[in-house]
Each structure stands twice: as structure tokens, then as C-alpha cells.
Nucleic acid binder design. Structure first.
Lengths: 168, 168
DNA sequence: ATGCAAATGCGAATGATTCGCAACTAAAAT
DNA sequence: ATTTTAGTTGCGAATCATTCGCATTTGCAT
């Protein structure tokens, strides 16, 4: 996919300021960023808004495309940079999936959870709660490692794909 | 890293056959491949040998470099292709790690396990056994997914790094 | 020995992410 | 309100692991 090669916009220079009044669509965002110590920017507000709309795991490029559809001026590199910044401040969680070669981002719910991924249609749902509660301590004892975290992805067939595949 | 740009070998053409007699260093390999229905090739035997030597998770490029050191003629693309083939036949397991942007391969032990990775020095140890035994069924019931698998990585500090970091 | 499908080498292509740098902008200082 | 300044953005080029195309070579059955 070559996301830059659509929507004829070449240089945005003079056009770039097009959204001065647009700042703060959903007003919580402004405070949200400020409380994280993140400088306010039209792009950052737009991206945050978009993350909320997505309401779930989403890829950097999809965020970029969604923003473009709404005529929000932003570049793909900026999307990546902002996502990095957000992650650093704990605003978003970045997940590197094993079966896709791209990173997935989602607003940090601040509750530990994992993804359940349909191997057919690739939808992911976030499952909260974690089966590894006691396990880490046991592992620490048996290995002498100091356990600091883990990553778990569960794969399966979602109900829809199960029926579409004829309950094989 | 640009692995092709070392060890002056440009074209291997005439040199390529250099290992006709070399087939079967460690004699189990031949049978191992045959029983998997994999065509015998000098490169495949060499790579399998190398996987055994590595005795643990290793990256495609490292395998390639190791082979080069032993003067085994092979190209990086072939390493990838063979690893794919081996994976398809269940000979190796491919692991896409979350904190490194490269794939890791290891001989398939045919016993379910996961990796414990030191976040400092990146060593990985394979931990056999799995804490998700009952969990998958429960999850299947509560989500109506048909669970088919999972991927788990545990992170921590290995004993060595703990002491080197002064038990922070 | 001979032929053909499969495997290999090489370099070029891909695709996600990052980087460099000049143009911009938010917010601090005046 | 204007200037300053440090941080941000856009753009295209660079990176890096992995894959592909295609001409050449090889394993192996006939």
C-alpha cells in the first residue's frame, strides 16, 4: 500500500492552517493531552479524536486514512511520531502483533488485557483480565528471572467466520 | 545491516558445487528431511545442521552469517525460503517477537512452550509447559470463539543482568 | 545418461517504519 | 501584541527485514 499517492494534495503549506477553529471537537481531548504534558497541536487533537472514534485496536496507517477522509491535514510520519509520543506518556498502547507485520495502537485502558484475534477475518477484541496472575511469580521462582511483563495473543475463529466456514 | 557486502564472494557459479561430498555431516539430517518429504539439497542439509548447532532461537540472518563463516555457500534469500519450507513441514517454529522487528526460528521441539526474554541482553530461554491450559476453554465459552492457539512471551531480567544492574 | 520440476543466487522490489532537514507553530518571554 | 525559541510537522529519502523475478543449476526419477 502506498498511502501517499492519493488525494491530490501535494504541498499543504498555505492550506495547512485550515483548521484553526477546529481545535477541540470533543472538548475532553484538550485536557487529556495537557494532563499528560503533551503540547497541544491540531494534529495531536485530531489523532486523539480519531483514536477515540476507532474505539479499539487500529493501525497507524488506518488512522492516517481515516483522518484523510475527514480532510484533516496530517502526514503519515506525523501519525507515527504522535503515536510514539502518546505511547511514551502512557496514552496509547502499542501492540506488535505476531501474525501481521505492522503495529497496532489503541487508547490505553489502563487495565491489563490481551487480544483475541480471528485468524480468518483478523478482527481483534480486547479481552480484559489475565490468566497469568500467579504464573509469573512461579516462573520467577523457578528461573531466578525478575519478571517484568508479558505479551499474550489468543487466536481463534470468531462466531461469524465459524458459520461462514460451515462449522468445519 | 547489509549481510551481502562481506566475504568477497561475488558469483558462486563454478564454486557452488564445492560441497558434493559434504552431504550428511551429521547423518541424522538426511533422514530427518526425507521423512518430512523435503527434497535433499546441500543448502538444506547445511541449514538444518546449523539450526541444530544453534540449539535455540536464532534469526535468519544469524544462521546465514554462521553458514558463511563455515564457508558454506548459501544466499540469504535461500535461508528464508528454506526456513519457510521447514516451517511448513513442522520442522521449525517461527516466532515473531514483539520487541525485535525480526523473526526468530528454532527447531520444533514438538512440545508446546514459550519464550522468556531478558529485556536487557535479549537472551531467550524456552520455557516448556503452558499456563493457559484451562483458560482457552473458558475463553471459548465466554466469547463463542473457537480458540485455535495462542502466543505468549514473558519478559524479565535474567540473573546476570540483574546483578550487573546492581539489583535496582 | 536425460529431462523436468523444484531449488538457488542475485539483485531489485516491497512495505512498514524512521530520519533529515527546512518550514511552521504553540506557548513563553518581552 | 510581537518576538523568541523550542518543539512539531511535511516531505521525501533512507532503512531494514523479508519477498520476488528470473536466469541458472540441481536433485532425482525415468
Amino acid at each position: 500500500m502506498k498511502p501517499n499517492s492519493e488525494s491530490g494534495s501535494k504541498r499543504v503549506k498555505t492550506v495547512a492552517g485550515a483548521g484553526q477553529g477546529t481545535i477541540g471537537k470533543s472538548s475532553g481531548n484538550k485536557e487529556m493531552l495537557e494532563s499528560c504534558g503533551i503540547k497541544l497541536t491540531r494534529q495531536r487533537l485530531d489523532l486523539l479524536e480519531q483514536l477515540k472514534k476507532a474505539d479499539g485496536p487500529i493501525t497507524a496507517e488506518q488512522l492516517f486514512l481515516n483522518l484523510r477522509e475527514e480532510a484533516a491535514a496530517i502526514s503519515l510520519s506525523t501519525v507515527y511520531r504522535i503515536l510514539d509520543a502518546f505511547e511514551l506518556k502512557g496514552l496509547v498502547e502499542k501492540v506488535v502483533s505476531a501474525d501481521e507485520n505492522k503495529a497496532i495502537y489503541e487508547l490505553n485502558r489502563h487495565e491489563h488485557g490481551h487480544h483475541l484475534i480471528c485468524t480468518q477475518c483478523k478482527v481483534r477484541m480486547t479481552i480484559t483480565g489475565c490468566p497469568l496472575a500467579g504464573y509469573e511469580e512461579a516462573l520467577a521462582r523457578s528461573t531466578n528471572y525478575r519478571i517484568t511483563g508479558h505479551r499474550l495473543e489468543v487466536y481463534g475463529l470468531c462466531p461469524k467466520c465459524q458459520s461462514e466456514l460451515g462449522m468445519l
